[in-house]
Design a protein around this nucleic acid. Structure first.
Lengths: 177, 177
DNA sequence: CTTTTCCGTATCGAGCCGATACTAATGGGC
DNA sequence: GCCCATTAGTATCGGCTCGATACGGAAAAG
């Protein structure tokens, strides 16, 4: 995967960390699309991330705009060019293809086991949690299409609950008897 | 994992690529402990890897010595200091701990599914194969403790068949009907 | 024996990265 | 409202990664 990421980045003359940043931003929800969150996610300092964002901005791959409420905060999102680059690189497609010969049931089991391992790993390291909103213990389902974050008190759309959140807290696993 | 690797490296003031190189060398078999193999494994050029090895050598973490037969070739192995550093960093231990709450059966299934996906992924990318000798189609069992590489014609010890080989070829999966 | 091929190294320039110092905005205590 | 601690982000500097290129030395091809 590491080699693959390097190769994909080299084609656009981007470093692995640039692609990882773009991938993250494409999946970050409203609480997690800031330089600070990206720095925590990548395990880099905010100064380093600031430079990375400078480069991505110069390339026109991201857009930066001020937060309405807290004017210290910079919000980030992919530009159309950034979306296109990511779409053409298709970093996740390779893995989807790689599982084509494996039964859906085995994939489900493997994914579930890996998710448990990841949660335990994150707890052990006391690191930033960073999980998909939909699997978070704060995520409440209000109706067919409307969700709510019990931590922040905001209403969330369905697609938004499939994004990555920096204040994620894992649900207690019921099957881990 | 990426963040973890960076953190572990930072404690020794090493870059991620340095730790990855050490990890690789700790697991590379006799056909795969050269700068060339490491470059292919990491997806870097041989020039870059040469510099990485220069640094690791200056730090006393690896040892370099000439090959007896082909005198162009440099053989690499971890020095005692390098072994100690890896042992203290314990990069694999975190994952072993993370699976402590998962039943051995689920782990076996997940590992098997992942191995299949990896093989497919490698075939798709036509990249360097790099697999564990024991799972290679050339690996023959001669007796209880003696194995043989059908490709190179050498006899291999049991522990050696658990190392990484650059001329790996995946066995045909029997269960993928 | 000559030519080609291959393994590894050396050097240069672009750029990542952490450390440090800095600006600007927020928020708490009074 | 005012002071100060805190927080988000930026700027600068030095060490190092990384690819490109050129090079030397050994092996293989003819």
């Amino acid at each position: 995967m590491r080699t693959e990421l390097r190769r994909a980045g080299a084609e656009e003359s981007l470093q692995p960390v640039h692609l990882q940043s773009l991938i993250y931003l494409s999946k970050a929800n409203r609480y997690s699309n800031t330089p600070q969150a990206l720095a925590e996610y990548l395990g880099l300092t905010k100064g380093t991330v600031s430079q990375t964002l400078l480069l991505l901005d110069r390339r026109g791959l991201i857009e930066r705009f001020e937060d309405d409420i807290d004017r210290r905060v910079v919000r980030l999102r992919l530009s159309p060019a950034g979306e296109r680059l990511l779409y053409e690189a298709q970093p996740t497609l390779a893995w989807q293809n790689a599982t084509r010969n494996i039964s859906p049931n085995r994939i489900r089991n493997a994914v579930s086991a890996l998710r448990e391992a990841l949660t335990t790993l994150q707890e052990d390291n006391e690191g930033a949690p960073f999980g998909v909103c939909h699997n978070c213990s704060w995520c409440q389902k209000l109706s067919q299409r409307i969700y709510r974050c019990g931590r922040m008190g905001d209403r969330l759309s369905g697609p938004e609950t499939r994004k990555i959140c920096r204040i994620f807290e894992a649900k207690k696993t019921e099957e881990a008897a």
